[in-house]
């Protein structure tokens, strides 16, 4: 019987691969920090609490990391950026009814699940207080202060009958899909649809 010498255990470490830096589209540093960050683009499509939270958290953190950050707000995603005092928006009865059914404003977000006629958001509000989690309004303020650019979708603004004056201050110029596609496809840009 031949003894087969056990093969010494080898730990295979993958060789570190060098990734050449991508051409940067000369971003304007959002937080004024010396970084070679490329960019983050988020398409925010929802007015729901549990989607707005990650949008605002990621956007403000990216901007705080010196990464130029843009959030394209479209469809229901426009509603949290309507000033809170505007209860009913739009011109025609259909636009008005939409805002009645889906109250605009950062303080009136519903949950995507377990809304339970407001019980869900109330409980989440309580829990976030207990755990010192920032409120959507605070996160929005932080995101704006850090230089996140929120770009409203012109087409849905028109469809909902939302005017520039009804939207909160500090938003970027309304734009369309081609603008977002151009931003998203810039080399080195990460994009998210939330």
């Amino acid at each position: 019987m031949t003894m087969i010498a056990p093969t010494p255990e080898t730990v295979v470490t993958p060789a570190e691969t060098f990734i050449p830096p991508m051409a940067s589209p000369a971003p304007e540093p959002a937080a004024g920090m010396p970084v070679d960050a490329k960019g983050l683009v988020i398409v925010a499509w929802s007015s729901e609490y549990d989607r707005i939270m990650p949008t605002l958290i990621l956007a403000s953190t990216a901007a705080a990391s010196g990464i130029p950050t843009k959030v394209f707000i479209t469809f229901w995603g426009l509603l949290p950026f309507v000033k809170d005092e505007h209860r009913i928006t739009g011109e025609g009865w259909m636009q008005k009814m939409l805002s009645l059914m889906q109250r605009p404003g950062i303080h009136h977000l519903k949950m995507s699940k377990m809304n339970f006629a407001g019980m869900g958001p109330w409980m989440i509000g309580k829990l976030s207080d207990e755990h010192h989690v920032a409120k959507p309004a605070e996160l929005l303020e932080a995101a704006l202060a850090m230089g996140v650019e929120f770009i409203p979708c012109q087409m849905t603004m028109d469809m909902f009958g939302l005017t520039h004056d009804e939207m909160i201050d500090g938003l970027g110029e309304p734009a369309g899909a081609a603008t977002v596609i151009e931003l998203m496809t810039r080399p080195g840009t990460a994009s998210l649809f939330i």
């Binding site: 937080a31 004024g32 920090m33 010396p34 958290i57 403000s60 953190t61 901007a63 705080a64 990391s65 010196g66 755990h131 010192h132 989690v133 920032a134 605070e138 996160l139 932080a142 202060a145 850090m146």
Partner: peptide
């Protein structure tokens, strides 16, 4: 007492006001 992402955001805001 603050939770994510506020410690980072506040630090970034502070660091902006300072020099290298």
């Amino acid at each position: 007492g603050l939770s994510c992402p506020m410690p980072i955001v506040k630090t970034a805001q502070q660091i902006r006001t300072l020099t290298s």
